[in-house]
Design a protein around this nucleic acid. Sequence first.
DNA 1: GAATTCCCCTG
DNA 2: CAGGTGATATTG
Length: 449
Amino acid sequence: MSEQYRQARLSRDPRFDGQFFIAVKTTGIFCRPVCPAAPPLENNVEYYALAHQAMQAGYRPCLRCRPDSAPESPAWRGVDTTVERGLRLLTDNPEQNIKKIADRLGITDRYFRALLQRHIGVSPKQYRLFEQLLFAKQLLHQGQLSVEQVAQASGFTSARRLQTHMKSITGLTPSQIRKRKRNVNGQHIRVTLPFRPPYAWPFIRDFLARRMVKQVEQVTDNSYARHVTFGEVRGWFRATFDDQRCYFDVEIELDDIRMLKPLLTKIRRILDLQCDPILIQSALLSAGVASQDILHGLRIPGVWDTFEAGCRAILGQQVSVKAAHQLLNTLVMHVGRRENDRRYFPTPQQVADAPLQELKMPDSRRQTLRHFAQHMAAHADAASPQDWLQLKGIGPWTVAYMQLRGESAPDIWLESDLVIKKQIDKHRVTAQRAAPWRSYLTLQLWSMA
DNA sequence: GAATTCCCCTG
DNA sequence: CAGGTGATATTG
């Protein structure tokens, strides 16, 4: 195992970035496999699967390669182990208390602590703290936000707390971490979101462009931008693709800086940045996709949330992508809130209350859309696929589409889709062999049509 | 015990 | 003024 690590770090191959971390015993610093610094001697090196473990062991993050900005490991790496699920829950629900998380895992909080301690040597609380610190570190490097704002954005209740912890873990104060002067005049917050190459940007771009909602989204040759809302909080982002450096350069405007983390999580999902393309590629090959047909770096193009995905799916029933696109734009034009030249995708309540007469489609589908919106308005947080299926006019295809695009679920197989049916025969693929990544197979087949 | 808040220092 | 730090009272 350590021989593989050795080769991976010496080659500095970005495909290994985020998979493990290299701690250097002589300096007390830990790095990413892509660190530009001279590779340390094997004798002086320790390997860790998680940045948190290296920090727990007393190492501080390297200032050159910034382990805080390594791409996240795939969400599904060992998706069945309780530990991995627990870690994911801890990061995805930073506010929720440990006991609740243990409940969701079906174990007691005491056992959860013990489990984490044994497997990764970090307590749940520490894990969260390290996570916050790494995020804060990234924001400090970006240089747009004050220390106070960074503290807020990374989930600390005060700048004081950020300071103490930052100093105790890295030995440096927040402003020392920020090597350049703070850029107060910068218009936008800027963050880089890394991915593991390759990334099939042209595919994602064209996919998004063909379904783009005017005034809400904007797709250019190398970027995707949109206006968003988190309840009352409004925001905007633009993610610009950088193939060379293997990241998206993201500009952000936000009313409430505390929403920064949730927004970045959304963007990561929409652009499917945590995907491990090598894994996907081999899944596609074993399903029987010809190697010259394979789209290298294929990702799932996400949408903002399941409600929006549901609207898109319902409006896309029985019609072409082009017609669905037309309907979607009509819906947003008439129902979405408008402010100056910007427009926001409508909320479930807004759609539920709208007459929807402008939509040129059968009345039954209008009803479906309305019922769906009412349902989503009533059960905003507890929406589940089973519930959606109960609604008249929502069948397996629609639900699958919602999960594929709205949740970026990796294993959605749109078997009832007409295009997919044709493609299965034509290319003689065995979908089962692509599990648990059949969403990618679905997209691959769509793209070949 | 740890977090929070406040005060005051420095550049 | 922004940021860093020690001291203090309060809290669970």
